[in-house]
């Protein structure tokens, strides 16, 4: 514990505030209500443009996030863009799994960015690569796509590359930072300006991981 004057002042200020009594009854009620509802997964930054994630995932021939109902606006826009009616399409879930579990399911050489925590992993079909959700900042996460160089990609996927469709049906272009190390293509979709920094961090961290002696 740091014991300089600044630390002592902060500690004293926080400890000087009286702690209210634990609202046990209210808490029990909320816990019961929460148990009745079931555990909700925390919202992530990328969820706001889930449509974009779906398309980008599609563009890179990967599984899309779990249990997503395509909104009417999304379906209409996709029909306008691609001429395909997705209203009857069932989105097949690729369940996120731990890195260790993903390694058991795939022979794809997964590169784990140095110093970054991998929150979950989604292996791609046919061992073509993997999608990692990586903690890049205190509250932020970024999606890191790793893909074998030359792995096959469908015509629709190629057509939709770099375009996102928001749930409200608006079309958005996604910036994507790409880099290649050996036989693996890496990419990070960048939804806002902050993602540029995350992508740079991830590029550095993957290069460091590959350069590190094994």
């Amino acid at each position: 514990m740091i014991d300089d004057s600044l630390a002592c002042r902060v500690r004293a200020a926080l400890e000087g505030v009286p702690v209210p009594a634990l609202p046990a009854a209210a808490l029990a009620e909320r816990i019961a209500a929460s148990n009745a509802r079931g555990v909700r997964k925390p919202r992530r930054p990328a969820v706001a443009i889930a449509g974009g994630v779906i398309l980008l995932a599609g563009a890179l021939a990967v599984g899309v996030p779990a249990v997503i109902k395509l909104s009417p606006g999304y379906v209409r826009t996709m029909q306008r863009l691609t001429g395909r009616d997705l209203s009857r399409v069932r989105v097949v879930e690729v369940a996120p799994m731990s890195l260790a579990e993903a390694r058991r399911h795939t022979t794809f050489p997964i590169v784990v960015p140095v110093g970054k925590r991998v929150l979950d992993a989604r292996p791609q079909d046919h061992d073509a690569g993997i999608v990692l959700t990586v903690a890049v900042d205190v509250h932020a996460q970024a999606t890191l796509f790793e893909r074998r160089v030359g792995a096959p990609m469908s015509a629709l996927d190629k057509k939709m590359q770099g375009i996102g469709v928001h749930d409200d049906g608006s079309v958005r272009r996604l910036n994507v930072r790409r880099w290649r190390i050996g036989q693996t293509d890496f990419s990070v979709p960048m939804f806002t300006l902050e993602y540029h920094r995350y992508a740079e961090e991830l590029e550095r961290a993957t290069r460091a991981a590959v350069a590190a002696p094994r």
Binding site: P23, A26, L27, R30, I31, S34, N35, V39
Partner: peptide, 11 residues
């Protein structure tokens, strides 16, 4: 703090 405790209990 209450929100956090509810999350702790739930998760």
């Amino acid at each position: 703090a209450q929100d956090a405790l509810v999350l702790v209990a739930a998760r």
